[in-house]
Every structure is written in structure tokens, then in C-alpha cells.
Amino acid sequence: MSTISLTGKVALITGSSSGLGKAIAERYASLGADVVVHYAKSKAGADSVVETITGLGQRAVAIQADVSKVADIERLFAEALANFGKLDIVVANAGMELVETPVTEFTEAQFDQVFTLNAKGSYFTLQQAAKHVTDNGRIIYVASSTTVFPVPGMAVYGGSKTTPRYLVDVLAKEIGHRGVTVNSLIPFAIDHSGIFADPEAHPELRKSLIDSCPMGRLGSVEDVANLAEFFASDLSSFVNGQHLLANGGATQ
């Protein structure tokens, strides 16, 4: 039986002051990794995650950066390396959602904001990861099930999350010779995270998504952390350029 350990590893997870990123950061720490907790605005949230990680006996540091800005992404990685000396695992998770916005209604400003953060931000995060991750390291992109099953009202969001999936395919080929794996995990809508952080938010969309899922629920942050654990571990050492969907069999 395999026992997963990330002891001695250093992981950087963008957008890890809450939600999916927080769950992944805390899971990695529970497996022995030291963690760079990235945040854009919520210092209090990031500090709380750091406190949890240090309580698990691991080292952690919170670093602020706006990942829609390339200079900030470069600084994030520079500060991470200054603190820990290396990066073994990088998870490009930071992003934003735009839902219930039909194609005929989204604005140029909305398009620019979503694509700048989700597509450009992920591209340059993955670029920095490729430059700095150790040989035999792990690079993980957190996509969205909207990249597989188009959902009305999510044209801009789904499009912005689809673009970096192509980069995953290319990057897996470009740096695979170093033993580095590059994969994406593709979660369904997640309860208690993102637009569904408020259980009362978007009730019609919530019902539609749950109705499309044979398991009758949204995903959980633990569901996503499970995939992130697999991709970070030795169990996925020969899994490269793949996109793993976790949506309970949902059809949207």
C-alpha cells in the first residue's frame, strides 16, 4: 500500500487564502510540505492559513501579489525562492468567475478583467513555474468543468479557463524531459467556494448544476484537494499533459 508523503517538498499555490487554494495548501502541509500561501487581497485569510500550516509543524509564508500583473507574478516567485530556496510543486489556482451573463450581455470591461486574471495570469504563473520548479517537480493548473461542458451564461469564464489548458499540453511536452509533470485538474462547481461560498447565492444555477449530477451534489474542496494530492505525489510520476475531470458524472 502506498503512503503519500510530501516531506521535504515546497509548494506554491496561487489564490490560497480561501476556498480551493486553501484546501490544497492545507492538504499539502498535512502531507509534510512547506507552503507558500499566495493572496491578492485577504491578508487575514492568508495569515489564517499560515497559522494552520505552522500548527501542523510545517513552514509557511504568505505573499501578496496581483497575478493579473506579470511583474507581481515574477516577484511572487522571487520571494518564494528567497524564503525556501526551491519550489517543487506549483499550483496555478487563482482566478475569478463570471456567471449568469449571456453572450449578448457581457461587456468589454468584464471580458478584459476575467481574461486578464484567468488566462493571462495563469499563463505567466505557469511560465514562472516552468522556469523555477525543480527537476521531477509538479505543475498543476486548476481549470473548470465549464471547459468540458459549456454552460449558458459562462461564455467568458469558460473561455478564460480553457485557454491555459492548451498551455498545459504544450508545457508538458517542453519540460517533460526534466521529469516535471504538467497537468490540469478540472473540478465541477464547488460548494462553499467561489460563487457558492454563500449557500444562498445563485439558487437557480445551483439547482441546475445539482440536477445535472447523478451524485446529486456540488463538489467539495476536499474532492479537489484529493486530485491535487495525486498530481503532487509520486503516484502521478508518469502522468503528464492530462486533464482530470472530477464532476460526479455531471452533464454540465
Rank of each mutant, 00 (worst) to 15 (best):
E108V: 14
T181N: 08
G249Y: 12
G85W: 03
I195R: 07
F238P: 12
T101L: 00
A232L: 14
S208T: 15
G159D: 05
E97P: 01
V133S: 05
D223C: 13
L167H: 03
T7L: 01
N93Q: 05
G241Q: 09
T52P: 01
D223P: 12
G121M: 09
I4M: 02
A29R: 06
G121C: 11
F196Y: 09
S237R: 15
S212V: 13
F111W: 15
F188S: 07
N83H: 13
A25M: 07
I190M: 10
A109N: 08
T181D: 04
Q110H: 06
E105Q: 10
N136W: 05
I73H: 01
V221L: 13
F124R: 14
K41S: 11
F77E: 01
Q242S: 15
F231G: 09
N183W: 07
G241K: 13
N83K: 15
T52K: 10
G159V: 03
A109T: 10
V168C: 08
Y157F: 09
L218W: 06
K86Q: 08
S184C: 02
G95Q: 04
A201V: 13
L244P: 09
L167A: 07
A11V: 06
Y123L: 15
G248M: 10
G45R: 05
I175K: 02
V151Y: 06
G32N: 01
G241P: 11
V239S: 14
A228H: 09
G153V: 08
V50K: 01
T181E: 09
A46C: 09
S42L: 05
A197E: 03
D112V: 14
N83C: 06
P187S: 01
T251C: 12
N226S: 12
A78D: 14
